[in-house]
Amino acid sequence: MAKVWIDGETSIEVEDADGVNAVSLTVDDKEIIVSAGQTILEAVQRVNGIGNIPALCNHPAVKPYGACRICTVEVSEDGGSKFKFVAACLYPVKEGLVVKTNTEKIRTLRKGIIELMLARCPNVKRIQELADEYGVEEPRFVLGDQDCILCGLCVRACQEIIGKSAISLVNRGIYREVAAPFYAYELTEECIGCGDCAFVCPTGAIEMGDDGKPILPKVKIPYAEIEALMKKEAVTPS
């Protein structure tokens, strides 16, 4: 017999079924039994009332990616003596795993990440809500004016669900952005106008245009500006 939590308060006893590969783990001091082969986030989301794990770059329709990092939790593989930080959207459930989803350390970490996101995207509602929840007031950094948090959901949906790859993540670091092939902002005929990208976007950064194709968010640091910056910094002896 095994105890399965159907939500935070209620559990039922179920028969061990042959061939069902189940693992039991502890989430925030509650033991849950779930089927193996899923991630901590999936397991926790399926059991109501257990754990508190926010996630932005995760969507059940596409493979986990681990980019936004606000789903970070603490796990211990040795029964609770040594903990490490892992992304819940990627870490597989294991027998005997101890998971803590809302410790002081994790709240501090999530607060920090949300502060960084809010500084980049101060006008995004979803981020503002998270900021309220985690007590982020005014970010300590120079504010940006972007809507895209570069979670890559649009790109993954286009590739994995639609099978088109009409958009991709291009460039790297702070200059990363979503673009059409060959670093174009105008979508090519590869785009079938399905609107999946706009649908999965957690921040509403992608809107559908009048031509039935999505309008991609632009990272507002165009190359001309970077070049100008570089020229300004270089010292040219006259």
Partner: peptide, 9 residues
């Protein structure tokens, strides 16, 4: 690479 928020931002 810009993939995750803490590193990029």
């Amino acid at each position: 690479c810009g993939k995750c928020t803490p590193c990029r931002e």
